[in-house]
């Protein structure tokens, strides 16, 4: 894991000198984070994950001069990765892994009886996560695994923070009953 100073130095080398070795170090440092998010979104399609992750880093490299708020490089990368997945899904309409992001509005009652709120009976946490629609999976992954705040998740996904909270509430309901089984 890079310190903030190391990260800033590498970004500065990429911007000022087009230093590809420095960019390689950034890729190495953040590849696991990006690939983990994409694994969650693509339901563990490793070949697709590698392709999308590479596209993510190429886009980051091309846009690194326009990076604002250098201290949020990881958030910026995750945002590119998330939108790369969304673009890929839109290009391949037959893939039904994505749902309309407007399906969860803060004004909507949470107990609307849809299947998203049903408790998980499966004992496998990974399976439970995979049952969530893609945007909810991303939100859950970023909040519980990466420790992102609601505001940062909102930045990454482009979803309103109320929608992020709504997704988290649904995910919490689905996952809470697994706690005792897994002794956490």
């Amino acid at each position: 894991m890079l310190t903030k100073v190391q990260e800033l130095k590498l970004i500065a080398l990429c911007v000022a000198a087009d230093d590809r070795r420095a960019f390689g170090q950034l890729v190495e440092a953040y590849a696991d984070d990006v690939r983990r998010l994409l694994l969650s979104l693509t339901k563990s399609d490793v070949a697709l994950v590698d392709d999308l992750a590479q596209e993510t880093f190429i886009k980051a490299y091309l846009a690194i001069r326009s990076l604002e708020g250098i201290t949020r490089f990881r958030t910026w990368l995750m945002r590119i990765a998330y939108h790369e997945f969304i673009s890929h899904t839109r290009r391949n309409r037959s893939d039904k892994t994505i749902v309309d992001i407007a399906d969860c509005d803060v004004d909507m009652p949470d107990d609307d009886g849809d299947d998203d709120d049903r408790p998980v009976t499966d004992a496998n946490v990974a399976d439970a996560l995979m049952q969530l629609p893609a945007p909810q999976r991303a939100v859950t992954q970023l909040f519980y695994f990466d420790g992102f705040s609601v505001a940062r998740i909102s930045t990454v996904t482009g979803l309103p923070s109320g929608t992020v909270r709504c997704y988290l509430t649904r995910a919490r309901k689905r996952l809470a009953n697994l706690l005792d089984k897994h002794r956490y």
Partner: peptide, 26 residues
């Protein structure tokens, strides 16, 4: 839940050539 998700998460598959493959596509 965070502890459970982190504890039960399957590791990211290692690809030692990922960095080289990415740099070659620049």
């Amino acid at each position: 839940i965070a502890d459970m998700v982190r504890g039960e998460a399957s590791p990211v598959p290692r690809d030692e050539w990922f960095v080289n493959k990415t740099l070659n596509r620049l």
